[in-house]
Design a protein around this nucleic acid. Structure first.
Lengths: 152, 152
DNA sequence: TATTGTTATACTCTATAACTATA
DNA sequence: TATAGTTATAGAGTATAACAATA
């Protein structure tokens, strides 16, 4: 009886690390991260920036602390990211009755940016997931959701 | 008919980003990364260091360039990582007949470090995957493997 | 007291270019 | 020419502490 050794693309055994589910989630995640960069090349978008745009679009008027909490980004690190987006005219920062916080909304330019990126990303994802059946994709997303729910 | 909006743990809609599989792979990966840190707390290990130890254990005599290729780490960035491991007495760097490359092997201390970490990691993974059935776990790992195979 | 945004800071990870020595 | 290791460097991501203004 033999055990199949998880290997990388170069045929090098990963050892005990390769027996961990976390190893493969990390490696699959890296494939998506690299592909994300290729998909949105030329737009100036990055994972964090796109995530912020998407959350602001879905929650107009949200403040940046809440966006950061949803994405796992510290308040302190949100500052320059939101500055980048407002500086590029993709997001508006407006005062509210709560004078501590700002209300974030997308500009028309921001809406177009999301549309451009999401169209490219869907095409790239289709390629990355081409080896998976419809059932496998559904199980994959459901399993990932249950793992996300374990977020401490 | 309504579409369920993918949300984060705080009930904030993720928008179009949450409709991407890549979003959920990233978020699930982050859960594993954070858990890894808690699992190996006090050992001084990090993801990259543990990955290197595991590959050296499974491929005694391998050179550091090959380890980096297997883990997606640039040659230049392997230098300080391997220095860290040799400096802590976990890895041996020895000359070979190919005088450009070094042969890496684990010390007894390195073997013990792997054993300690893998035992903790298996317990932590069991907790993270507790909501998944045996079939779901198998499908998850298989799906991740097919995505890893898309590595450019 | 708690929350929001901010500044400063530091460490890790990642990426690239250039150098050496060996093959 | 190509490979293995190295150095230097820069950008991005991440984490913490401390502060001001507001609730």
């Amino acid at each position: 009886m033999t055990t199949v050794q998880p290997q990388d693309g170069n045929g090098i055994a990963l050892g005990v690390y390769g027996q961990l589910v976390g190893c493969h989630i990390r490696r699959a995640s890296a494939v998506f991260v690299n592909d994300f960069g290729r998909a949105v090349a030329g737009t100036g978008m990055r994972q964090a920036l796109f995530g912020i745009l998407s959350i602001v679009a879905a929650n107009p008027g949200i403040n940046q602390g809440s966006v950061g909490r949803a994405l796992g980004i510290q308040r302190a690190n949100m500052v320059s990211l939101v500055n980048e987006l407002t500086g590029r005219g993709l997001v508006l920062r407006e005062s509210t009755d709560n004078r501590r916080a700002f209300a974030l909304t997308l500009t028309a330019s921001g809406e177009r940016m999301i549309a451009t990126c999401i169209e490219r990303l869907h095409r790239h994802e289709a390629a990355l997931l081409s080896a998976l059946s419809r059932d496998e994709r559904a199980t994959l997303v459901a399993a990932l959701g249950r793992i996300e729910a374990k977020d401490a």
